[in-house]
Design a binder for these strands. Structure first.
Lengths: 235, 235
DNA sequence: CGCGGAATTTATGTCGACAAATAAAATACA
DNA sequence: TGTATTTTATTTGTCGACATAAATTCCGCG
């Protein structure tokens, strides 16, 4: 709606438009700038980016393939809804992927992997220190993504990425309802344990920590949801 | 290359062309009619299907999103290679998904799910009886897919589908090198055990059977590969 | 005869326009 | 006034054509 983007007009490399639109829309969706259910209009996007509908369309097809938007035939395409009814399947898969990727990272990581993981952990620590919520969510994602990459299994990596993305929307939705306790600090502690287990190549410990971390996250989110629901009813 | 398709020219519903092209190319890729590395030419496809390049392109974008084709910028797009170097990651993920989906099916299946599963099992049995290899591969896939659907977790379902597809290419590649023993009969027995465990809602048994089934499949494929490799060296 | 650069070729990326399908608006009718 | 039907409007799906980038060929020169 807001014409917030520079047309960035002429100086586009020949294949870059699609990726740019794709990444920007993706971020906007995951940060809830485009809330679930919003209508995505090809023509508006075309004008906004100063390009034809064709590359826009291509980006939309990719987003649809990942389930981030739903497109009804011959009619509008909209940002996909969050499926609260089946959240437990999300939590189930998320837990499993946390465990599997952390285990594999403990098994297969290289020194460079470990460096990268630690860098993202420090970045997360910084974001926590200045209470930058968007940054916290982003660096948290990067941290776990780096662990998954160290596990060197592209199948797990792609499913996990998708789950982390959906999780990003959930976090964004409930973050402001202020999780209980000092959550960022607890996450930081758990992240440290995770890195330690990976560095020690202790697979059992890695599994243990990953599972505890997942359980904790899920409990927090569920608590936030039920609290939120109760407020809905009160209104 | 072969102009094997009817242009099916005029009478296409407005949004159907894309799905048709997508599904046909997908099948051709998975059945190795389009072997890994083949060049996919938009213009040829457009002529062959009697439509413009635009819908062809859309189908190709979807296929690329699933990793079935690779597209180098400004240059040709080709059917993606089978990554033999990292086959173990494929086997790892496949085993895990066999186990998880079978467990969940045991937990959440409905009577209708069980009917469907049993129908596909019988279909597989029939294909085995007449030694129809393509049919065996297809019905085998449908059988496991039905189990995953009964598990009601779309994240697992989508990863599992992707793995089954890649497996379809592998099977197609090695099937004719005649697996050891009476493999179809063994698969049939294991499928029966799987259905029994699911029907009994015995999660532990389901897990056990799924794991054994996966191990057995993987062993067969690995054996076929090493045999094949040895032949290569001999030549 | 071999090599480096310019022209040609070929397939892709992008565009603007038209056609079809659906939703919304307007009109007719009871 | 309410409902059914036609008309309009908007947005998507498709098309043919042009622009551009890489690969190939061709050509001159050493």
């Amino acid at each position: 709606m807001t014409a917030s983007e520079m047309p960035a007009s002429q100086d586009r490399k020949r294949g870059s438009g699609v990726r740019m639109v794709y990444e920007l829309l993706r971020d906007q969706i995951l940060d809830l700038e485009l809330p679930p259910g919003s209508i995505v209009d090809e023509i508006q996007l075309a004008e906004r980016f100063g390009m034809s509908r064709t590359p826009i369309r291509e980006a939309l097809v990719r987003l649809a393939a990942e389930g981030l938007i739903d497109t009804l035939p011959n009619r509008s395409t909209m940002v996909s809804q969050i499926d609260f009814a089946n959240l437990h399947t999300f939590f189930d898969a998320l837990t499993l992927m946390y465990r599997v990727t952390t285990r594999l990272a403990a098994e297969y990581h290289t020194p460079e992997d470990l460096d990268r993981i630690r860098r993202y952990q420090r970045a997360y620590e910084e974001r926590c220190a200045v209470n930058d919520e968007i940054g916290m969510i982003a660096t948290n994602r990067q941290f776990h993504h780096a662990i998954a990459e160290a596990g060197r299994n592209r199948y797990y990596l792609s499913l996990f990425s998708r789950l982390l993305d959906e999780g990003r929307r959930l976090l964004r939705l409930y973050y402001y309802s202020s999780f209980e306790g000092d959550m960022p600090a607890q996450w930081l502690r758990e992240h440290e344990q995770m890195v330690a287990a990976i560095a020690a190549r202790d697979i059992a410990a890695a599994d243990q920590v990953a599972r505890a971390h997942a359980d904790q996250i899920i409990r927090q989110i569920q608590k936030a949801i039920t609290r939120d629901r109760r407020q809905d009813i009160a209104i």
